[in-house]
Computed example of a mutant assay.
Amino acid sequence: MMGAGNFMDEFKRDAVAQITERGYPVKEVSARLGVSMHSLYAWRRKFTKAVSCDTEKNAEIRRLKRELVRVSEERDILKKATAYFARDAR
């Protein structure tokens, strides 16, 4: 059996996916892969935090994109209004 520090991140993510996505019990995955249950729980915490952080970043990016579209539309409307009133002022 290898120590927890000897596993690649890809292996750890796959092990966590068996628990979180495929619904296998931690005890079963631990026995099948030869990894301690403690390591699996630690990996799950580590990779779940990374995913939630990415999710928050993606949500912020989506919000900023929506705001950019709104502000761009407002700018275009103001440009047209300015041109309209400048034409009438002559």
Rank of each mutant, 00 (worst) to 15 (best):
M1C: 10
M1W: 11
G3Q: 10
G3M: 05
N6Q: 15
F7S: 01
E10N: 05
E10K: 10
K12F: 02
K12M: 06
R13C: 07
D14P: 02
A15T: 15
A15M: 14
V16M: 05
Q18W: 15
T20D: 02
T20F: 00
R22W: 00
G23Y: 04
G23H: 04
V26T: 12
K27V: 10
V29D: 10
S30G: 09
A31V: 03
R32N: 06
R32D: 05
L33G: 00
L33M: 04
G34W: 02
V35S: 01
S36L: 00
S36G: 04
M37T: 14
S39R: 02
S39V: 06
L40E: 07
Y41S: 07
Y41T: 07
A42P: 01
R44M: 13
R44E: 12
R45A: 14
K46V: 04
F47W: 15
T48Y: 02
K49A: 11
A50K: 14
V51W: 13
V51I: 13
S52W: 10
C53F: 05
K57R: 06
K57D: 02
N58F: 08
A59H: 04
A59D: 09
E60P: 00
E60H: 08
R62P: 00
R62Q: 09
R63M: 07
L64D: 06
L64N: 12
K65T: 04
K65A: 10
R66G: 07
E67L: 15
V69R: 12
E73P: 00
R75H: 10
R75C: 06
R75N: 12
R75I: 08
D76Y: 02
D76S: 12
I77D: 03
I77S: 05
I77R: 13
K79I: 15
K79P: 00
A81V: 10
T82I: 09
A83H: 06
A83V: 08
A83T: 10
F85C: 07
F85Y: 15
R87M: 08
A89F: 05
R90L: 14
R90S: 11
